[in-house]
Nucleic acid binder design. Structure first.
Lengths: 172, 172
DNA sequence: CAAGTAAGTTGCAAAACGCAACCGGGCTAC
DNA sequence: GTAGCCCGGTTGCGTTTTGCAACTTACTTG
């Protein structure tokens, strides 16, 4: 994948896939949310090979999701902590988790996300319109933004045209 | 990864990672949201190798995200369409996309998600409490749910304890 | 019927992954 | 202070996954 996936220019999904699209990165982020910070903790709790872990931690630090800091009390240990950018992935993680429990495997309810202050479970993550209504996938369109490069712009416009012609065909 | 990543029992993130944790699956889902359906379309638009594409499509069909249907008008072509489970990934995709644009690379605004009916851009995806307030990562806890297996339960409780002791340490 | 096209499949080379052994600095205990 | 252990890596090597290109089979089109 690494060499290819120029895919469609600066598509944000392509960029995030290049960074987190492997079997471990998301698990490492999850572990970090669960409080892991030391190299050893990640290794033990995930059962990941040490060379791979080194590689992924470097990548995540390089991307600004984790911050590497050598402990002051014991200079052998290194702490990897989530940065603000890393913590901003929390909605993604929850959305994935909720989707997984609803649509994968045996429909189990194995993790609860509750508000610390109230003890109440949070709502399912949803797409919400500008004025606060919950939206469905069918009610949305993707349009090229101001910074879309030509390839992405072409792709999104093609998708629009296709949807348009499909709608026209359905209407006829 | 495939063999390992038993990770922590039935953790939903581990399950979703096993399914979508590679360089292509999410891109295929994105393409499907953009209207691609035929084998050739995925191939051309993503630049993915055909054997890999075959493999991923089968996996996604097997997981119930895509539905494989041979065209009636031309029996050579095969249509892969998102199922309800697949469409339910839309919030995840948008959350990833929004995160990517905010925290990756050059802060660009290359894709706009707008409501078809109003033309208004949607709100950023957020975690919302039971009574509708937007929550921050720090205001949440993960607790084992009724279906958590022992390993996951232990992991989540350990995280709780650790957070507790850290809080105690910070308070002292 | 000849040519072209769609969706795979196969074989092979290159890259990524996983494991286990090794390493160097830093603590700890005697 | 030195022997032994822990921590965070690194290295070498075998296995798996990926990527590419050529081939195949079924079908449509001219």
């Amino acid at each position: 994948m690494s060499k290819s996936n120029p895919c469609q220019g600066n598509c944000p999904i392509a960029r995030v896939t290049a960074l987190l699209g492997d079997g471990w990165s998301l698990m490492i982020i999850r572990e970090a949310f669960l409080g892991s910070g030391k190299f050893n903790e990640f290794e033990r709790r995930l059962g990941i090979a040490r060379n791979i872990l080194t590689n992924r931690l470097r990548k995540l630090v390089g991307a600004g999701l984790l911050k590497r800091r050598e402990s002051e009390t014991d200079r052998r240990v290194v702490e990897y902590r989530l940065t603000a950018a890393g913590r901003a992935l929390f909605p993604v993680l929850i959305a994935l988790s909720q989707w997984s429990e609803q649509h994968l495997g045996d429909c189990s309810h194995s993790v609860r996300y509750v508000e610390r202050a109230t003890g109440e479970e949070i709502r399912p993550i949803r797409v919400v319109s500008a004025d606060g209504r919950e939206l469905d996938a069918g009610e949305l369109v993707m349009l090229p933004g101001p910074d879309a490069d030509p390839a992405l712009r072409a792709r999104l416009n093609a998708a629009l045209d296709q949807a348009g012609s499909e709608a026209a065909r359905a209407a006829s």
